[in-house]
């Protein structure tokens, strides 16, 4: 398969950046999107040009490193997949593919397709944890957890922190990311003591980082590689209101 690629190139955070067009030929339909970019990069290196920088690591959709807008869609047009899960067979031969980095104020582009997502880490540092000391804990089976709650907590905990929710949101809102963590802990007995403080601190940090407001159009859920449901955002709202009002 052959493709024309329009890729955002930006030297560093201060550079203004621009799109450049490249051609790649004889790509196997079984190759992944990132493997196609590997081929392009090999080509660029051979031509003595700098390869396209993009974050990636596990290449099996779990580390959350990769993430780019492919033809206007976060992680490409497929549902429930990260960029590394995208296969070239999902494109048509000869297609032009536009590749852009995540765009949001709190995610500055630091090179080509790489953005700085440390805002997510700072939200986690603000309260995305249960304050337990190593060792000072009861036996694992001492507190049963209703299976349904454990399953729903796991649904939320599946978040890989890739930032697609922010990228796909017209408002660059991080509500789905924050909701996933708040919801996970709100559903488990272990998360109860810090329940109110956690949600307030995480939302405050989210606002401080400059993420937008949720306008409930659910593009985040549609693009989430792990299919995390917006019902968790409803829970986040509920937790926040209860924490503020009671």
């Amino acid at each position: 398969m052959n493709f024309t690629l329009k890729i955002w190139r930006q030297k560093n955070q201060n550079d203004t950046g621009k799109f450049e067009t490249y051609e790649v030929r004889s790509i196997s339909p079984d190759a992944s999107f990132l493997e196609m970019l590997d081929v392009l990069n090999n080509q660029l290196v051979m031509e003595d040009r700098e390869p396209v920088a993009f974050d990636h690591d596990c290449r099996e959709g779990i580390c959350g490193s990769c993430g780019m807008m492919i033809n206007g869609r976060a992680h490409g047009k497929g549902r429930k997949q990260a960029t590394c899960d995208v296969r070239m067979r999902s494109f048509t031969d000869g297609q032009t593919i536009t590749v852009e980095p995540w765009r949001a104020n709190p995610f500055p582009v630091i090179k080509d397709l790489i953005v700085d997502r440390t805002a997510f880490d700072r939200i986690m540092q603000a309260g995305g944890f249960i304050s337990v000391r190593t060792g000072g804990v009861p036996d694992a089976n001492s507190t049963p957890v209703r299976k349904e709650n454990a399953e729903e907590a796991m649904d939320a905990a599946a978040c890989i922190g890739c930032g697609a929710c922010v990228a796909a949101c017209p408002n660059s809102s991080a509500m789905l990311f924050v909701a996933a963590k708040v919801s996970q802990f709100a559903l488990l007995p272990q998360g109860q003591p810090e329940r109110k403080e956690r949600v307030q601190k995480m939302v405050a940090q989210m606002d401080k980082e400059g993420f937008g407001n949720c306008s409930n159009n659910y593009a985040c859920e549609a693009e989430c590689p792990k299919g995390i449901s917006v019902t968790h955002i409803a829970r986040l709202n509920r937790e926040f209101l209860l924490a503020k009002l009671t």
């Binding site: 329009k6 807008m69 033809n71 869609r73 852009e100 765009r103 796909a168 017209p170 549609a222």
Partner: peptide
């Protein structure tokens, strides 16, 4: 974005 297909998702 140069291309932003929000209409696919919302």
């Amino acid at each position: 974005y140069k291309s932003f297909r929000l209409k696919d998702n919302a």
